[in-house]
């Protein structure tokens, strides 16, 4: 089964970087540029994993997680946050919002894939 991953980042280069890495690893990737778009896409599709940035226009990553978690189909789905913060406070916020885990930017393709393997098999 090919896992469907939704990635969400307002930065085109980060998005491309993610997409290239994930496509290369044979995942099915959908991109979105802000939280609102991601939410809409998530409602229309059934993604196996959502990876989202935190700082984004329209709807930030933490709020996106909150909005996804109330949707029945995403109650148990892994959602990873992309963050540049190594600050434990930020991690707590991420967990409080309902995120599964986080990926620290900048990431190395191997680290990214390792993180994904923690939640998708």
């Amino acid at each position: 089964m090919v896992h469907k991953i939704l990635i969400c980042d307002d930065s085109v280069s980060i998005r491309q970087m993610l997409a290239l890495t994930l496509i290369d690893a044979k995942y099915n990737v959908t991109e979105s540029k802000d939280g609102m778009q991601a939410l809409e896409l998530a409602k229309q599709n059934n993604f196996d994993l959502i990876i989202t940035d935190i700082n984004m226009p329209l709807l930030d990553g933490l709020s996106l997680v909150g909005k996804l978690r109330v949707l029945p189909e995403y109650r148990f789905k892994p959602i990873l946050l992309l963050t540049t913060e190594t600050d434990p406070e930020k991690k707590k916020q991420a967990k409080a919002a309902g995120a599964t885990g986080w990926i620290i930017k900048p990431f190395d393709p191997d680290k990214l894939l390792a993180a994904i393997r923690k939640v998708l098999r």
């Binding site: 307002d10 930065s11 700082n55 930017k105 900048p106």
Partner: peptide, 24 residues
């Protein structure tokens, strides 16, 4: 202010990927 923050933030994030350490 958020716009400005996000701009700096995105540049940092991207620069990291390409190992542009001084920019990071």
């Amino acid at each position: 202010i958020n716009n400005i923050f996000r701009a700096a933030h995105s540049i940092k994030g991207g620069a990291g990927i390409f190992h542009l350490d001084d920019i990071v």
